[in-house]
Computed example of a mutant assay.
Amino acid sequence: MNRTEKKQVIDQLNERVNQASIALVTDFRGLKVEEMETLRTRLRQEGVHYQVVKNTLARLALEETPHAVIKDEFKDCCALALGYDDPVVAAKVLSKFAKENKKFSLRFASYAGKTLTAEDIEELSKLPGREELLAKMLGTMNAVPGNFVGLFGNLLRNMLYALNGIKEQKEQDQA
């Protein structure tokens, strides 16, 4: 790889890292090509970018980015996963893949300017995703007016039962 190719890789990676909300570093040693392709497919379906990159190039690309806190941690065989919209999605996919493949492991990550350990990533993967949280919030918001309508419906129904009872009692008294 010559200097211009390296510069191009650094620039492309830097641009992607600046847009990413989370950057996860994995160890892929020992994985077969088919397993690696399976992982890449799963990540691509979730909108996560996954790239094997030389450590030196990764360090240079991470400089002056929100994920610069992890730039000095790159050692051995590393691959970088970048999640853009929902950081939980990337953590879930990678954690699930790590459980299925013992040779694959999560090393560390950067989220909101902080370094996360492999245990932190595992905990992050257990959280509900953005879509699930939005669904719960909308369900809660929808429940309030529904309960309000139900409450007034019960009040009106009870009032109608009382008026009906009074009507029936007057009819019996007149007869």
Rank of each mutant, 00 (worst) to 15 (best):
L94A: 08
L94H: 12
L94D: 04
L94R: 12
F97N: 11
F97L: 11
F97W: 15
A98P: 14
A98W: 04
A98N: 00
A98I: 03
K99H: 04
K99N: 11
K99L: 08
K99W: 06
E100K: 03
E100N: 06
E100I: 11
E100L: 11
N101P: 12
N101D: 05
N101H: 13
N101Y: 11
K103H: 01
K103W: 02
K103T: 04
K103C: 03
F104C: 00
S105F: 00
L106T: 06
R107T: 08
F108D: 12
F108I: 13
A109D: 14
A109S: 08
S110E: 00
A112P: 07
A112S: 08
G113S: 07
G113Q: 07
G113P: 02
G113L: 06
G113T: 11
G113V: 09
L116E: 10
T117A: 01
T117N: 06
T117D: 11
A118I: 05
E119K: 10
D120I: 01
D120E: 00
D120F: 13
I121Q: 05
E122T: 02
E123D: 04
L124I: 04
S125E: 09
K126N: 06
L127M: 01
P128K: 05
P128Q: 06
P128R: 04
P128T: 03
G129D: 05
G129S: 03
E131S: 07
L133S: 10
L133K: 03
L133R: 01
L133H: 02
L134Q: 09
K136Y: 08
K136M: 12
M137D: 09
M137N: 13
M137G: 13
G139E: 02
G139Y: 07
T140E: 13
M141R: 08
M141H: 15
M141T: 15
M141A: 11
N142M: 03
N142P: 02
A143T: 14
V144W: 13
V144R: 04
G146Y: 14
G146I: 14
G146D: 09
G146K: 04
G146R: 15
G146S: 15
N147I: 09
F148S: 13
F148R: 14
V149W: 09
V149A: 14
G150H: 05
G150N: 04
L151F: 15
L151E: 05
L151G: 14
F152G: 10
F152Q: 08
F152T: 06
N154H: 10
R157C: 15
R157V: 13
R157G: 07
